[in-house]
């Protein structure tokens, strides 16, 4: 009896936040206390987001309230010299950091997108399930390797290769710490992200679509590229965006391999500094709370957060808006 009762209450109070407390199965003080504490765990994630926004922006705002800094020159200025002896707004332009970040993100996307998409098509369309069960976990190890190891790999293996190729073969000058080396390892690191999300999207394409195309006489290549990939396009594009957003937020590999020279350049053989590696550099130098450097990392961190957050939202929207739903 109480069950049917609660069912009625359920349907009535469907939109109330605490309707879960009125289910018939949740009777008695103990049950309700447990339900409330689980609810607190559930909404904690919202407080984490609020905490991130509050922590980043409260410090960032006190950074911009300083007379030495100015929001406009921060966004448009082309010099980032926070450690210079002269503390003037002209030394706090974040564009070199953003451009360094984008330079590495673009090159790593150029590596990871074709390789990740190719791997995804192979795993979803061509491989037997036996090969897939072996290859996919192996590929995902790449995503599980700690990023500091990629930094090490860049310095001990990729950078010497780049230097011997460009300097000794082509005669072009290369910095030891260069954006290309960091971008290559970041690209390798995000292959599994791109591959596994794209593959999920392609596997969700129903069999009947493929069979219809085969019945019209299409080859496997044509089915894969003209039927499956277009049908899964929203998922594939969101995989690309998530991969790039990971590359933007990547920290240790770029800190180790790309150097610490904020520079407004599109030359990948130069040393650059990304937003993340600036934050690490300052944190390592023990900037005291309330100092201009201690606050500048929060301004940079807020910029980074906004960029990756927007990309994640866009990727979400693309999936929701353009997803083809098959039954």
């Amino acid at each position: 009896m109480s069950l049917s009762n609660s069912y009625n209450q359920n349907t009535k109070k469907k939109h109330s936040f605490f309707s879960f407390l009125n289910y018939g199965e949740v009777s008695g003080i103990k049950e309700k206390l447990i339900a409330i504490s689980l609810f607190v765990c559930g909404i904690l994630s919202i407080f984490i987001t609020i905490g991130i926004i509050f922590a980043l922006f409260s410090e960032a705002i006190s950074f911009f309230m300083r007379p030495e800094v100015n929001l406009w020159t921060f966004l448009t200025g082309t010099n980032w010299r926070p450690l210079a002896s002269k503390v003037v707004p002209e030394n706090f332009g974040v564009r070199p950091l953003i451009q360094g970040t984008l330079l590495i993100a673009v090159i790593s996307a150029l590596i990871a997108i074709p390789l990740g998409l190719g791997s995804a098509i192979y795993l979803s369309e061509y491989s037997s399930s036996r090969i897939r069960n072996v290859v996919k976990p192996l590929l995902e190890i790449l995503a599980g390797v700690p990023t500091v190891v990629y930094g090490y790999f860049a310095l001990s293996f990729i950078t010497p290769l780049i230097i011997s190729f460009f300097e000794d073969t082509l005669g072009v000058e290369v910095r030891f710490f260069n954006a290309l080396s960091a971008a290559i390892v970041v690209g390798i690191m995000i292959i599994p992200t791109v591959a596994s999300i794209s593959e999920d999207a392609m596997r969700a394409v129903p069999r009947s679509l493929r069979e219809g195309a085969y019945a019209l006489g299409a080859t496997k290549f044509e089915v894969s590229t003209k039927v499956v990939v277009p049908a899964a396009l929203s998922g594939i594009i969101s995989a690309f965006i998530l991969g790039i957003s990971r590359a933007i937020g990547e920290t240790m590999a770029v800190t180790i391999a790309a150097g610490a020279t904020p520079r407004l350049t599109w030359n990948p053989l130069e040393s650059v500094q990304t937003m993340t590696s600036f934050i690490v550099q300052v944190s390592f130098g023990d900037a005291p709370a309330g100092s201009i450097n201690g606050q500048s990392i929060f301004a940079v961190g807020a910029t980074l957060f906004v960029m990756t957050f927007l990309m994640n939202i866009i990727s979400d929207l693309i999936v929701k808006r353009f997803r083809e739903v098959y039954n």
Binding site: S45, I48, I52, R246, G249, F298
Partner: peptide, 15 residues
Amino acid sequence: VNNLSGVPSIVFGML
């Protein structure tokens, strides 16, 4: 929850 899993780890350090 889905969005938080995409936030760069360094931001959690600042939090």
